[in-house]
């Protein structure tokens, strides 16, 4: 197996928030009937996290389940296990109307850390990032400036952002600009 290459080689910037490109992250796109008991059993058994509710992000370490739409999950697994996990899921869903694909190299991921993460994110997306509007563990698919993105907060000071690989550099530059120490806002505090 060839070595995985991060889109930006693990780019890093420290400003209002600590912005770091993360990965490689194993990702499996799964489309199907999310209410099906067999499907739920397969994905929760594979990842060890509970089935997410609508817009839920259930993530533990490198494994997790992201609710992408009423018929789509993004299954997170360790990068090296993605191919095997895909085969396992496809096997479990045999006979069902479902799609399972290994899309590990399709996206770029970034981790933002710091007390200002909600302010930094709020500069880039038409989303209410207040604590009660986007609680920890809720996935929001949206756009960051001109590109599609997904974001969730894994705790109060850590945000996970993902976008397509082809716009990874654009995304990193956005995050870096929004996290410029001269651009302090201090709105989402306390």
């Amino acid at each position: 197996m060839s070595d995985p290459v991060l889109p930006l080689g693990g780019a890093h910037y420290e400003g209002l928030a600590d912005v770091r490109e993360t990965g490689p992250q194993g990702m499996i796109a799964l489309r199907g009937d999310l209410s099906d008991a067999g499907l739920q059993e397969a994905v929760t058994g594979l990842t060890g996290v509970p089935m997410p509710d609508m817009r839920g992000a259930q993530v533990m370490g490198e494994s997790g389940l992201l609710w992408m739409s009423p018929d789509e999950l993004l299954v997170l697994v360790p990068y090296r296990q993605a191919a095997r996990a895909r085969a396992q899921l496809a096997e479990a869903l045999q006979g069902q109307h479902a799609l399972v694909e290994n899309v590990s190299d399709m996206r770029a991921m970034f981790r933002l850390r710091g007390t200002q993460v909600r302010d930094v994110l709020a500069k880039l997306a038409p989303v209410d990032f207040a604590r009660d509007a986007l609680p920890v563990g809720e996935l929001r698919r949206t756009r960051f400036a001109q590109v599609a993105a997904g974001v969730w907060l894994s705790d109060d000071t850590t945000a996970q952002v993902f976008c397509f690989r082809s716009v990874a550099e654009y995304m990193f530059n956005l995050l870096r600009t929004a996290a410029d120490p001269d651009a302090f806002v201090g709105f989402h505090t306390g």
């Binding site: 609508m54 739409s69 038409p126 698919r141 756009r143």
Partner: peptide, 19 residues
Amino acid sequence: EMLTLECPYCGVQADETEL
């Protein structure tokens, strides 16, 4: 003035520019 629509599938209050 921006248009905000609630997506009936995922419940998001989507801004016009997300639609």
